[in-house]
Design a protein around this nucleic acid. Sequence first.
DNA 1: ATTAATTATATAACTAGTTATGCAAATGTA
DNA 2: TACATTTGCATAACTAGTTATATAATTAAT
Lengths: 316, 316
Amino acid sequence: MEFFDKVGKSALGSRLRLMTAVVTDDAAKIYELYGVDFVPKWFPVFYTLAEEREITITEIANEIGHSQPSVSKIIQEMIAAGLIEESAKTEDKRKNNVVLTEKGILISKKIKQQLEDIDVAIEGIIAESKHNLWAALEEWEFLLEQKSLIKRVSEQKKKRESKDVKIVDYKPEYQEAFRALNVEWISTYFEMEEADYKALDNPEEYILKKGGKILVALYENEPVGVCALIKMNNSEYDFEMAKMAVSPKAQGKSIGWLLGKAIAEKAKELGAKKIYLESNTILKPAINLYYKLGFEKVFGLETPYKRCNIQMELVL
Amino acid sequence: MEFFDKVGKSALGSRLRLMTAVVTDDAAKIYELYGVDFVPKWFPVFYTLAEEREITITEIANEIGHSQPSVSKIIQEMIAAGLIEESAKTEDKRKNNVVLTEKGILISKKIKQQLEDIDVAIEGIIAESKHNLWAALEEWEFLLEQKSLIKRVSEQKKKRESKDVKIVDYKPEYQEAFRALNVEWISTYFEMEEADYKALDNPEEYILKKGGKILVALYENEPVGVCALIKMNNSEYDFEMAKMAVSPKAQGKSIGWLLGKAIAEKAKELGAKKIYLESNTILKPAINLYYKLGFEKVFGLETPYKRCNIQMELVL
DNA sequence: ATTAATTATATAACTAGTTATGCAAATGTA
DNA sequence: TACATTTGCATAACTAGTTATATAATTAAT
């Protein structure tokens, strides 16, 4: 299939589907070849029954990796075909235990040789090929169990996008974004306070002129995240990290992390030994981020903000 | 999936189906993650259109390995979603050429980054694993194209069963089978003749006592094939191979081949240089077998049989 | 120039699975 | 002991494909 060479690995699903169709189509013909009156889709259920003697529908479904309704339907078909029967002698009346009939046992014997032939044929293909499909499927089952494809793709997305994020110094043109991004989250969770308006309306005067810093995260040249380093007086800390905000539209790009790291770096450059922050525990993702950045809880400082119920510090 | 360890390679179809489901389920989530309003099953069609600019439904189906009705339905859905449109400017009015709309082109650009991320994620899994699933699928596509699974299984069946066939010397207890197997095919295609009755009713006298041989093929201890080596007098040949018959129930076990080989071997043992046979060209499988055994056409000998329209010899 | 065969597509009916849901039996809990 | 929750199964409705078939347009053949 030339198509797959062009399209790349993202068509893996399609490629698998086609191979599945090729293999299962031939499976039907194989039963015919051996003169067995049997439908391929019955096989996993039938095999389990032949092994286990007596088992419930839900147990079968779990064993073979089908949904319960799928097994339910297959069981009904096989009962109609006379291969299995309900065994009734269970106490739990919800359960529908099934066993092979005489005819079923006969077919299971008849089928044995066929399965061996198929096994040999497939082993033959594996021997002819450089890459072992059977072993590869086993490995993939394990690896995707460990970490699903969607998880892996989303990690790759994050990694790539965070490369496209630039952290730059504040410029007057970013004042609007600095204000809007902060107002957005503050007014969602709390109420805007006096101290907020001062800093957000006039960052030059209230933050920069006092010796603080503001960093802006740009994605595709748009400001999508901001964070300030505010000079503290009469305190064991030189700076407070505050007014961190990331646009919800730009989530999943590790922008908070990148801003936090950059702010800590900047504080170090400015000679700080420790930085301080205030937050609220209802902001769970934020608190998580602070822990990841290395902040730890502290107690007892005074704060002008009502919304503060947790205080943290980062030793640089 | 423990099930697959127990059940063996014959469950390859089931295993493939499960892996396909795992991968395609995540594919849907991936489109969601990237905020693209897109159904995974559209992808192969969409990709082809994005590459080829303008192409008919049947061409797409062939390219991506789907059936034409499948593509037909997908096209309809994508038209409804506004991603593609009919391009009308074809002369052949049967054809329904389709192209991407503006919106489609936009999405194709949007999707590009996503495909790259998936590619990287899958490459990551491949790098983590010892057995390359992608490469294995490619190899299997090639190998099954060369020789299908059903062909391989049927060859294995034949091989195994021919091992269970024993070629033994004639004993009086096989007279009935010798007669019945021959009467079956002769009376199906021709009419029994005088010479047939003589040899079949009294093989001891008409074949063995005159220095001929009869071999019997046993499968599960039942006589399922017979073949005679008849002494010829006043001829360049020492023996004629005749009365070869195989039960239709025992077909596909190479019994004709095994009998023919054994008869030739026996003739050699008896000092013959060439053996001769008579047949009729309407018996195509038989003629094919004779060629495979090394017989070649000859002309001009006299024969007592009306049904003979081809004569052959094998140089030993 | 007809007629027959082929081609391109659409539609219907089927297949082998899925998820969602409802019901009855069994189990847990106050 | 009564009520809520959980479990096991069946059924309905859906999905992503298939094969079979009908129809119209085109091409080939007499």
